[in-house]
Amino acid sequence: MAAGGPDLYETLQIHYPPSPPRAPAPRSRPATPRWAVGTVLAVGTAVVLVLGAALAVIIALHVQSQAELWEARAELAAAGTSGLLDPNSEWDPVPRASSRAQQRRRDAGTGSWLQGLSLGWRYHAGMIYFFSADRKSWVDAEAACRSAHSHLTSVTSADEQDYLAREARGGSYWIGLEATGPGNSWRWVDGTTYSEAQSFWAPGQPDSTDHGRWGQESCAQIHPVGNGLWNDHNCNFTFPWICKRSLMPP
């Protein structure tokens, strides 16, 4: 290098590539508190238990309805009318035109009866019953039963009373008993003869309480008092009701 000349390293320019941008450091997630994990597990367990209980109720109701249906079929068969379950069955050993027409009517009637069992009607001892979910006055409830070819239920035995009280499950339901005529004597709307000896009034009932402009208590209901014993109530008040009709077609 010549004396006094510029230093090579002083004039040399070095270009460095730009540094790549640094990615921001990931933020650490806060730890989930143990109490939150416990709450989620508790809620999940509760939901599973509720769903399990609901499923158990549905299965129990289905089993009950199937048992009632088979019991009804068995009673029809025992009565010698098993042929009614099959529209093509020739159960009359000497079929005639009139008997065939009657059979078709009975087939249709029995089919509708059995269909009713699958639509909410409940079977007991040759009768089927409907426990409503709606509320109506006594007169409107009887009209609803008539539209289903039935009447508000009569009660003719201790066994039937026990069945209705059990199925009512502590609810209040209109039954087909009303006080009419001279002396407000009680009668069953379906024509069954009323018997004081075969009645199931709660203690102190009927008491014919006067509800002023609403009138007196002239209609009967199954009532929670006395585990389903009868109570008289004003006919204009609204309650659920029980319809009854025979399993056998007319």
Rank of each mutant, 00 (worst) to 15 (best):
A148W: 05
E196F: 12
S65F: 09
E196W: 11
F131Y: 01
S195M: 01
T156Y: 04
A101Y: 02
A144F: 02
A79D: 15
A125F: 07
L152K: 03
A179K: 07
A72I: 03
A78T: 03
H151L: 08
R122G: 02
G109Y: 09
S195I: 00
K136H: 14
E178G: 12
S132A: 12
V94F: 14
G171I: 09
W113G: 15
G120Y: 03
R135N: 09
R106D: 15
E142R: 09
A78W: 03
T180K: 12
E167T: 14
D86L: 01
S147H: 02
S154D: 12
L84S: 09
W188K: 06
V63R: 14
L152W: 04
A179F: 00
R187G: 05
H149K: 08
D140I: 06
T193N: 12
R146D: 11
L114C: 00
Q64E: 15
S150I: 01
L69V: 02
A144I: 04
P93Q: 06
R73I: 12
L177V: 04
E71A: 15
W174V: 00
D190A: 01
V139H: 10
G176I: 02
G126A: 07
L117K: 07
G191I: 11
F130Q: 06
D134S: 15
T153K: 01
W188S: 06
A197I: 07
S65L: 08
T110Q: 12
W91E: 14
L152S: 06
S172D: 05
S137I: 00
L76E: 03
S195Y: 12
A179W: 00
D92G: 01
R105E: 15
S99C: 03
G80M: 03
S89H: 07
Y173W: 00
R100D: 13
W174T: 00
N184G: 14
R106P: 05
T180S: 13
T81G: 13
R169F: 12
Q102W: 05
A179Q: 04
T180C: 13
V63P: 03
R169L: 15
A78S: 12
Q161R: 11
L117Q: 05
S132V: 08
Y173C: 10
A143V: 06
G191C: 02
R106C: 03
W121I: 05
L117D: 02
G83Q: 05
V63A: 15
S65E: 15
T156N: 12
L177S: 01
E142T: 00
Y163S: 01
G111W: 09
L85R: 07
S132D: 12
V189D: 10
P95V: 07
S195P: 06
A101E: 13
T180Q: 11
E75D: 09
G80D: 08
R100M: 06
V94S: 10
Q64H: 15
W186A: 11
S137N: 00
E196C: 02
Y173Q: 05
W113S: 14
A72M: 04
E75P: 00
Q102K: 13
N88V: 08
L85M: 14
P93M: 04
D107C: 07
